[in-house]
Write a protein that binds this DNA or RNA. Structure first.
Lengths: 162, 162
DNA sequence: CAGGGATATTTGCAAATGCATTTAAATCTG
DNA sequence: CAGATTTAAATGCATTTGCAAATATCCCTG
């Protein structure tokens, strides 16, 4: 299962993917798991008229009050141009509201509406279920350690964004 | 159907995303981290004429010999119709080869060519780098525990696919 | 062993995506 | 303070995507 652990890089030679094995390469596992998670939510989202970018924007907006659009793009992991159009739709459906920034008239802040919030609240239990499926049989302590590692990883990548 | 988790808790018992906080919700963290990982590889891939689906197919094919297309779709986390077209391109570029299955003439098996393998070998060091960036400062033991948890999660979701 | 599903893959098409560009406004520089 | 540069967001456009349907083949049942 778990391979031999080389904490130090062997000088010169990089192990091949074939040697590590797909299932020991963390990004592969993460992509595969998230692909499944996202797919499992797609149907529920479609019922609510949501796409992945729209859902992500709503999720972030349910937590963060009035971010700039470029900030929202980072938090919700959506290209800014894609987000711009997702926000067009969400605004048209009355789920969010765009508001010119007070200090910078280039900038726009985004707020979730009550309707947007209740829309997201409808989806949220399905998201919790999907998460529970992923973590089934994994003890709480291990989950916490896992999330702790993810948070460190986020800190690492954050140095390169925002 | 072995759903051990509490099916439907009484209303109000489910913590909201806002209460958990985005950075305690594992799928959010994973999506964000993988979004960054994938974005960081996109430029390198573009230089090699690869898109994400093409790269993923090559990666899997460098490890798994001659899978069926539908299997490759699962392993590489790409929609089958998208994969079908990605394979068209890869075959046109001589990086893979499709071969009719001996026993089932509906089915097609896919093989990486030498050229495809060396293409992927060019990208692989960048993938290792991207992974190293993610894991920077995280001790080997913690990495292994993390990968171990991912493997359990993959087992969980596998019950729902393949 | 014929007929009605399953299964493997491809393809048509509308919608979504992402890059590059545009527009508008803020900020820096000499 | 003018002009150049940077930044925020939207948009044009070609490509990509994913769903649904089409095509081809296989398998099961009576």
């Amino acid at each position: 299962m778990t391979d031999q652990s080389p904490p130090e890089k062997p000088p010169g030679t990089l192990p091949r993917l074939g040697e590590i094995g797909l299932t020991n390469y963390a990004p592969y596992l993460m992509n595969r798991i998230m692909g499944r998670y996202n797919a499992s939510l797609r149907e529920e989202m479609a019922d609510l008229g949501l796409t992945t970018p729209k859902m992500r924007a709503l999720a972030v907006l349910s937590v963060i009050e009035g971010p700039l659009i470029r900030e929202l793009a980072v938090y919700s992991v959506v290209e800014q141009s894609t987000l711009s159009r997702a926000l067009d739709q969400l605004a048209g459906e009355g789920l969010i509201r765009r508001e010119a920034d007070a200090d910078d008239s280039r900038a726009t802040r985004v707020y979730i509406t009550e309707s947007g919030r209740s829309h997201f609240e409808t989806l949220w239990p399905r998201m919790v279920e999907a998460q529970e499926r992923m973590f089934r049989g994994i003890p709480a302590e291990e989950r916490h350690a896992f999330v702790g590692t993810l948070q460190k990883m986020l800190t690492n990548i954050r140095k390169h964004e925002i």
